[in-house]
Nucleic acid binder design. Structure first.
Lengths: 238, 238
DNA sequence: GCTGCTCTGTACGGTTTCGACCATACGCAC
DNA sequence: GTGCGTATGGTCGAAACCGTACAGAGCAGC
């Protein structure tokens, strides 16, 4: 089957579309595999496609002119990458790349924008999604400014867990430290503490979530608000 | 004159509109004074108006469920408050309040949204502005995660200076510490250092910018990217 | 000029996180 | 099984920043 049917699709944005709106977009859809570290959006470069994630996980990172960088957002099955085209700019200054390999339904930007013109339901749903991303960005700033590594690490693991199947996250301490903007051995220490609490189990290149509920307790107010906003705006029948 | 003419208006978004688009919005405009600490958008409450700032300065803050908060954005003459209505949500989880008293042109939300439907040029300009705010949010997260108080304070002062007339910023160390999410006496110490560099002059309740160029040097890569994006997307003739 | 309030200056000890290291452990390729 | 690259565990002193506390300075009102 060349184009996926709505019932088969796993992306939560596409699932939330009215069937006829989905059909309008369907002709332009293409299911593609996305490999680890693949860029979906490069900073300052126009992107040819927008991506509705089907599996795997992408990270959005902000970089400064003097080389500092930090992760500011996650994109999984609940979201899309490249939405800045809807904000009338062909480029973004944030980079989006695959943190965990997977697949996505991609749509060429021109066809995507054309379809939006005619289907308000798509446009409005995705604008609400953009608002959710704003809330997520704001909470990343809040997390970085007001919470300790301990809580931020918990938040980060929860955000990954939300977006991936299963309880295993394939990632190294080094990668985590880059995303959180902290020292690598600091991540190691904090993971030991979480292991001591029987919340996660870490092995070489892998972190398994053992007790998600307790992990949410550890994260405290650092986690949750953007997720609640998503449920409210995207998945609640109006 | 009941409604302002475009040549008199000081808001940079309104100035950038094509004249006929401005006229469409003009009927609904009302110039209002905004007092210190006045809320323009309350978290979780629908707002009746959007505000195009004419003078003064508003802060956007994110708050978590356990009471932590930090400033994530600035809104001055270059911007508007309440744009989340364009993202199809009547409420936002971010609060916007006046940090420095001033005035704004306000437009009722319903009339605003109605006018947008008919004037793509307004909608597209403001969508580009929303993108600029995203970049600003991302940079706030980056600043909080990767830069020291010293650089963040410099960034904050620069962002205020960009948006206000003159070189005097009327604010207390206490307020600054709340916005930056740091200890009050930490702000005092850092200001002394900036005074030692002859970059600012602080008096009770006031900070005067003496040497803006040097202040930008102090801020380093922490400052500048969102500002460049604004100039590129809003004020460059397409 | 006195009073009372807010704002600023400064100090203390304590915690978090850093940067730079090096040692060890794992696991794949051969 | 050996070798080697990568990942993890752990240490050191130093820096940034915290919470708390209190004294003095500026300013408005009486």
């Amino acid at each position: 089957m060349p184009h996926p049917s709505q019932s088969e699709v796993r992306n939560r944005l596409l699932k939330a579309l009215p069937p006829q709106a989905f059909d309008a977009l369907r002709l332009h859809m293409e299911l593609v595999e996305l490999s680890l570290r693949q860029d979906l959006v490069e900073a300052g470069k126009p992107n040819a496609f927008v991506y509705f994630m089907e599996s795997g996980l992408a990270s959005v990172v902000a970089e400064s002119s003097d080389g500092e960088s930090v992760e500011i957002g996650h994109v999984g099955r609940e979201g899309m990458a490249g939405y800045h085209v809807m904000l009338m700019t062909p480029t973004s200054s944030h980079r989006t790349f695959m943190q965990s390999a997977g697949s996505a339904i991609r749509v060429p930007v021109a066809a995507f924008m054309g379809t939006l013109e005619e289907h308000l339901s798509i446009r409005n749903l995705l604008l609400r999604y953009i608002h959710c991303c704003e809330v997520q960005l704001g909470h990343s700033a809040l997390a970085n400014g007001r919470y300790s590594m301990h809580e931020r690490l918990a938040r980060w693991l929860l955000m990954c867990h939300d977006r991936l199947d299963g309880d295993d996250l394939a990632l190294t301490h080094e990668f985590l430290s880059l995303m959180l903007g902290v020292r690598r051995s600091g991540v190691t220490e904090q993971l030991h503490i979480l292991e001591g609490l029987h919340v996660v189990k870490a092995t070489r290149g892998n972190i398994r979530i053992i007790d998600r509920e307790k992990l949410e307790e550890v994260a405290g107010g650092c986690y949750g608000a953007p997720e609640a906003e998503y449920r409210r705006l995207i998945e609640t029948p109006a």
